[in-house]
């Protein structure tokens, strides 16, 4: 794989990976577990994330994956993508397409990702650019809900329940999943570009504001008892807004979210390509097709209410292992061995 990234492309790529799919739904578990202090816990989690970014930037050169860990990550991504696709299919089925067969929706999503991944890698890297304006739209239309917000929902902030704060921190992980991609794509950044300092801070700030708005809005819009019943709060907020020319914003935004998520799936496909083809392989095209075939089959086993719930309630532990602990371990080990990414 031979391509290089500019700073804008690199951070755009990360942004899409980190926000895709989960943006409409990660607020629910966070608020359920940390109650009124959710917004505060999220600030803490963001600080932690910023620290993590710093750590990754400092030591990314030591993130050398040997054959075993390469396979670990390939399989992890395959499964994560399958779960994401299953969730996308499930949300689509419950919100807009109750009758359309699930396999068809999954096929469409996977087919698009396959097409994008069979052409040159720059396509996947740059397609996120088209999402920038519509992501802006998301935030602008969320602002319509401002008159309906209840400020007193943000209080009281409770400090003394460490367990509650910890649970909230762990569930904030949803917002930051996919951060291991930083390590994967960082070596592709053009050699002479500086990322440390201002660019990293700007990225963190944009990501933080984008997520924080959604957390705060959700918290102020719904009562605590109510949020437990609402798995996709952002969609629900948009559903209750009415503008002059459109009665139901959620219908548009569910599809905007879908295209956004499809790009995320494509980027996971690209990461697979990058990692798998970092060694010379005989049939690069064939392996991409097989990866997507698996993607088309695996989600079908997850697309049920109870299984989706199970995944939602447990996947953050998996995320912690693969996005934080394992990269740190690998970096430390390689640091100790003195091995670096060439």
């Amino acid at each position: 794989m031979n391509f290089s990234l500019s700073k804008a492309q690199f951070f755009l790529l990360l942004f899409i990976i980190q926000t895709g799919v989960v943006y409409i739904s990660f607020q629910t578990p966070l608020i359920i577990y940390s109650q009124h202090s959710a917004w505060f816990v999220f600030i803490l989690a963001s600080l932690f994330h910023y620290g993590l970014l710093f750590f990754f930037e400092r030591y990314y050169q030591s993130f050398f994956l040997n054959g075993f860990f390469r396979w670990v990550y390939l399989i992890y991504w395959l499964l994560i993508t399958a779960v994401l696709i299953a969730y996308m299919g499930y949300v689509l089925a419950s919100w807009v397409l109750p009758q359309t067969p699930e396999w068809l929706v999954v096929m469409l999503i996977v087919g698009l990702s396959l097409y994008a991944n069979l052409v040159r890698p720059e396509t996947v890297i740059n397609i996120g650019v088209m999402l920038i304006p519509i992501i802006f739209l998301f935030v602008i239309f969320l602002m319509l809900a401002v008159p309906d917000l209840t400020w007193s929902n943000l209080f009281p902030v409770e400090w003394n329940h460490t367990k509650q704060i910890m649970a909230g921190m762990i569930h904030s992980m949803y917002a930051f999943f996919g951060i291991e991609m930083y390590l994967i794509y960082r070596p592709f950044l053009k050699q002479d570009l500086q990322v440390k300092g201002k660019p990293l801070l700007i990225y963190q700030l944009v990501l933080f504001i984008f997520y924080f708005l959604s957390v705060v809005f959700t918290q102020m819009f719904f009562a605590l008892e109510e949020i437990q019943l609402i798995p996709e709060p952002i969609m629900y907020i948009l559903k209750s807004q009415e503008v002059n020319f459109v009665k139901r914003l959620d219908i548009f935004f569910i599809y905007i979210w879908l295209s956004w998520s499809i790009v995320t799936v494509m980027i996971y496909g690209l990461s697979f390509r990058v990692l798998y083809l970092s060694k010379k392989r005989k049939h690069p095209k064939r392996s991409i097709v097989i990866y997507h075939l698996l993607l088309a089959i695996l989600p079908l086993f997850v697309m049920q209410f109870q299984r989706i719930e199970f995944v939602k309630n447990s996947i953050h532990y998996v995320l912690i292992v693969f996005t934080i602990l394992l990269p740190m371990m690998i970096i430390c080990w390689n640091k100790w061995r003195g091995k670096r990414v060439s």
Partner: peptide, 20 residues
């Protein structure tokens, strides 16, 4: 065939084509 889903699929195909 698919309503807005169809349009989204079409747009993504169009974009991939244009970008590559």
């Amino acid at each position: 065939l698919f309503g807005f889903l169809g349009i989204v699929v079409g747009v993504v195909i169009l974009l991939i084509h244009l970008i590559s």
